[in-house]
Simulated assay, not measured.
Amino acid sequence: MGGFSIWHWIILLAVIAIPVVAVFLIVVLVNRSNKPPAATGAAPPPIGQSIEARLRDLDALRARGVVTDAEYAERRAAILGSL
């Protein structure tokens, strides 16, 4: 009757391990929720600039070769989608 049996060790492990795992999971979830959102690559629209001016600027960028046709189409759709 001396010493710990295997059941004592299992219960002791469960009593210690469950709170440690719970605290670890809470810390991980809190850290994930505090991260800033990933950048989408699209710049926010200039403040106070009209839709027409933004489309003209986009046309000028495409004419200079700064944006590809695919980027042009995507950004034009985004500008028109903000109406």
Rank of each mutant, 00 (worst) to 15 (best):
I26Q: 05
D59V: 13
I18F: 08
S82A: 12
A53S: 14
I79K: 02
A38F: 02
V23F: 09
L83E: 03
D59M: 12
I11G: 04
F4P: 04
A53C: 03
P37D: 14
P44G: 06
L61R: 05
V15N: 04
N31H: 14
L80D: 10
D69W: 02
L12Y: 14
I16M: 13
G81T: 02
S50W: 05
T40P: 04
T68Q: 08
L83P: 05
L12G: 15
P45M: 02
A39W: 06
A22Q: 03
G65Y: 14
L61K: 03
I47C: 00
L12C: 11
L61V: 00
G2P: 01
I51M: 14
A14M: 13
L12F: 13
S5V: 07
A22R: 06
V67I: 15
L80Q: 12
G48N: 10
L80S: 04
L55G: 00
V15S: 11
R54V: 11
G41A: 03
F4W: 14
A39T: 12
S33H: 08
V27A: 07
D69V: 03
L12K: 08
V28P: 01
I18W: 06
N31D: 06
V66L: 03
M1S: 11
A77G: 13
W7A: 14
S50D: 11
V66R: 05
A43M: 02
L25F: 14
I51H: 03
G3N: 10
L25P: 01
I47R: 15
V23A: 11
G65S: 09
L12Q: 12
I47M: 12
A39M: 09
P19V: 08
E71G: 01
A78P: 00
L13W: 04
P45L: 07
A63I: 02
E71F: 00
P45E: 06
N31E: 08
Y72L: 01
A60T: 13
A42K: 12
V20W: 09
A43L: 03
H8M: 10
V23T: 09
L58C: 06
I11R: 06
M1P: 02
E71H: 01
P37F: 14
A43V: 04
I6E: 07
T68K: 07
I26F: 11
A60R: 04
I18H: 00
L55R: 03
V30T: 05
A77F: 07
T40A: 13
F24D: 05
R32G: 04
D69G: 12
D69P: 03
P45H: 05
I6C: 04
